[in-house]
Nucleic acid binder design. Sequence first.
DNA 1: CGTGTCGTTGAGCGCTTTCAACCCTGGTGG
DNA 2: CCACCAGGGTTGAAAGCGCTCAACGACACG
Lengths: 242, 242
Amino acid sequence: MNFTSIPTAQIQDTMARLSYFEGWDKEQLARLAVGAKQFALLRKEKLAAKGDRLEALYIVVSGQMRLFIPLSNGAERVVSLVERGDGFGEPCLIQDEPCPFEAVAGKDSHLIAIDKLVYRRELRQSQAMTERTLNLISQRLLHTLHDIEICAQPSSLQRVAHYLVHLRPPSLDTEQEFRLPALKRDIAAKLGLSQETFSRMLAFMAQQGFIQLSGSQVRVDDWNRMHGLAKAGCPMEVAGKN
Amino acid sequence: MNFTSIPTAQIQDTMARLSYFEGWDKEQLARLAVGAKQFALLRKEKLAAKGDRLEALYIVVSGQMRLFIPLSNGAERVVSLVERGDGFGEPCLIQDEPCPFEAVAGKDSHLIAIDKLVYRRELRQSQAMTERTLNLISQRLLHTLHDIEICAQPSSLQRVAHYLVHLRPPSLDTEQEFRLPALKRDIAAKLGLSQETFSRMLAFMAQQGFIQLSGSQVRVDDWNRMHGLAKAGCPMEVAGKN
DNA sequence: CGTGTCGTTGAGCGCTTTCAACCCTGGTGG
DNA sequence: CCACCAGGGTTGAAAGCGCTCAACGACACG
């Protein structure tokens, strides 16, 4: 964890450019920046272990953080992949509870750490900030429920189909080609699948003409058919010849 | 859905006795009670479908609500079992998003519905209420993450063990006997297991001396051994004779 | 050209599900 | 008092799906 000593004013400046703080008061940011630190993490470097007491709110400035629950068989269940402009740790700080996941850098990253006490003090004193945070956490809870919905799908094929469908939102009316937002391994771990199964399902969908894929580029020609896959329990039929 | 026309004052009175509103201002409750309705639900009666726009915050006065995600194979993935004094729907109201689950009465129940507009107005105007709600939702997010952790366990035996361990909190230092907090069917659906598998795992744990059970009464003699089960990937070994 | 990371493919096993029948309990009405 | 029924739960047998292990391929980097 490489602390590059950076003046508060510059940290505040960086914060102002992050989507996390979009629309926040300038004075609010100034107060939050007090005692905040910026630092770098190397790929695979661990920031927090499951059960740790977090001492700060973390915001990703660049890179990516993998939040996951370590499993007894050595595997991981990815809970969230935090990209630039997003943060994590609010519920732990607010409730003073141990961290429910492990936080490891997925790439070389830069983060900002906002001191826990400062954070809580500001939260207590600013209605606007409390509201924003409530919105944020509500959003995140809904998002988590949606993740659960995906993982609850009875077959792995449906899980992947559901995931792809959920990946559409950014106006893919004309552009139906996109790239997977993370390593396939991590996506698999988020869907509760092994890397191998995820690969096989993608291959199957390609072979059946649901998608075309090269590397992490994916093209979906017919979203309706994809929706069908997500809902219908097509039992991965003979797949021999159609 | 049987609306028993009840005066606002009496609803406010009922609210004051619910743990959900513990410590809230009396005036706050009075304002929230305006436009609130109390009603009864019969066992299995549906209150909201997945995708519905909720028009109220719901608080359970008696009975139990099952919140679940319906699956394509007709099964359900229980997300939460809401008992007396708890509520649901806040994130949907706050974010104005469709309901991510289905809400059905698990038993004959009585609920209070607090009008969406009233709720949001009060939330906007009261720092205290925003804070409380933020705490509530944070708590719920952490709880949901823990549920994910349980469901992520690689074997069903570990899932059940984890679940039982998590059921301990209420000072079971002396009293290590308790009863399951819901129908086994619903617990199974919350663990992402079929009813049959859940039954088998309990039977196995009983046969191996991890627990004693009669009906929904469970006694755990050695919590350490149970912890062991939850973490170690004991692959349901031969179980023949020890 | 070696090394590390990411991903694909193949073969085999075993757990979980599914479908089925059966048991048990409590309530109801003749 | 007992027959009957509905709901909840248990148990058995069979089948399939996803995991594990392992080897291989592709690609980037130094």
